[in-house]
Every structure is written in structure tokens, then in C-alpha cells.
Amino acid sequence: MSEAPFVEVRDLRRVFDVSKPWLNRVLENAPRQYLKAVDGVSFDIARGETFALVGESGSGKSTVARMVVGLLPPSDGTVAIAGVSMNDVDVAQERQRLRRRIQMIFQDPYASLNPRWRVGRIIAEPIRAFQIVEGEAAINNRVGELLTLVGLHPDDRSKFPHEFSGGQRQRIAIARALASNAEFIVCDEPTSALDVSVQAQILNLMRDLQERLGLTYLFISHNLAVVRHMATRIGVMYLGRLVEISDGKQLFSNPRHPYTRMLLDAVPDLAMTGKARDGVKGEIPNPISPPCGCTFHPRCPLVFDRCRIETPPVIDGVACHAVNEGRVAAA
């Protein structure tokens, strides 16, 4: 695609202060401690595409999601939607205009809907906040449309969230995200709290909606199979860094970074091809004191001296010295 990317994330960083309280630091003579949750992440998302971030716990993928939607201010770096960055807009009105275009779907459908609000009010809230349509009747109409769009009944508006199952609640959450006519939706593990059969319903719904409304998704997940099913492009994260960005199909047919390979190898195999699995070693290190150099080096089968000292930059979609030096044949 030659046009400017719809979503542009540049060198995003986020540091959390995880120091002990002041008194403890003084008494125990402990230094301040920082956690680099996200450490220089850059990617683009084209309009209408699904970009997935995949990684294990502590990889920083959810932190990226929260920074992209503006729930968490980045320590450094920028997020721009259609060329407009959150950092650039000072006027409240402008900011609101940008917010309208970005919405989010959360992991836990049991916590993402206010339990004391009726569904109709929940979905109407963004419509009122962004003044999408005016007048009670029009708002009501729109809520009904949205509920139908996500496969629920317009009459469901008068119920409370607890009257719905997890999958139905996630539909409500999707309806709320669409209520502001958002174009870009950040989905943070949208199906990992759901059962497989319900997950299939939600994933299919999300794909249908993407086709119908031309939505752009940033899809966060730890589940490689789900990511494969949804994403056009995929970024693999490890300890706050992107280690590989690749075309959706290619990542699975031709994984390049050793971590990606390990991850793919570790996924339980439903097809039961009986593949050998010996590549999985060790566990994710403590992100407060990550290994120096390439953070993956203690677990990497291809490690050599340079990996322990120098952090590999992302070159041609892979952040790995071994791959860049051509010491690994692209399988």
C-alpha cells in the first residue's frame, strides 16, 4: 500500500515505577526500580486491515493497546491515527473527534459493562457523548440498530448485563464500540474469557463487521490460532519488544525469529501430526531485570556472543542477530 498508513505507532515506550514505598527505600537502602513494559515498539496498520500483537504474559502487548487508545500516556513515542497524533491535539473538541474514531473491546465481558446500567443506556452513552445523533427517539433507534447488528434483539436494551451470557455480553461490548461509528477498534484479548464455541461466534461476528463497516482492528491475543484466523499482519512481542513483524500467512509458514518458532512449536497440536517438541526451554525472565542484549538470549538455541551484549534492531521485520547475519537459513 502506497498511501500513508491509517495507524502509525512510532517508538512507543512505557516505563512503570515499581519502586517500594519511599520509607522502605530509605530504610532498606533500596534503589528505585523501573519496569520497561514497552520498549520501543513501532508498527503501521493500513485501513481495513487486522494487525495482531501476539505474545505471552509480560510481553507488554496489553500496555501497547492501552497506549494506542489513549488510556495510558506513553513515556515516549507517538500514536497517530490518520496523521493526527494524540500528543498534537490540545483542544478538547479535537481530542474528542479523535477519540470518536478509536474504540476498544476488552477481555473480560463481565467487567467491561457497568452492572448497574441497562444495556440500552450502556450503548447510548457513546452516542450521547459524541453527539452522533440527537434526540431520544433517534438515540433509541440507533441502539436498536446496533443491537441487531451484533446479533441481539432490540428489546434486549431494557435488560441488565447480568441477564446475559459471556458471549452475549461481548456482543454488547462490540455494539458499544461501534456506537460512535469508530473506524479503528482495539481488541484486547476479546475472546480469551469465552468458551470455544462462543469464541467462534464472536470471531465470525468481528470479521463480518469488518467487512461490512470497513473496520481496522488492532487485535491483541496470546492465542496463536486465533491470531492466525483473524490477522492480516502479525507482530510478535517478547518482554516489551517486537521481535518479528510479518505477513499473517508467512509468520506461520515461515517463522524467522527463534522465539516465534518456539512459540509456534509450543502450541498444542489439534491436527496431531505428532511433531517433535524439544525446542521449548525455560520461562520468561522477570521483566524488572531483563537479560541484557537480546532479551531472548538465555532461551535461544542460536545464541552467540553478540546477542548477550547488543540489542538487535528490527531489520526487515525481524529483530535477531542470527537471522540478520544470515546464520539461519530461512526455513
Partner: peptide, 21 residues
């Protein structure tokens, strides 16, 4: 149930869905 599980193999086609819960 089996059709609903996204797979790492084969074509990434539409998932089978069982209606309802």
C-alpha cells in the same frame, strides 16, 4: 466444537459456529 476451534493448519476459513449457548 471441533469446527469452532481455529487451527494452525490449513486455510483460515470461517469458523463453524453452534448457534446459541
Amino acid at each position: 466444537l471441533m469446527g469452532a476451534i481455529p487451527s494452525l493448519e490449513g486455510e483460515a476459513k470461517r469458523l463453524v459456529q453452534i448457534p446459541g449457548t
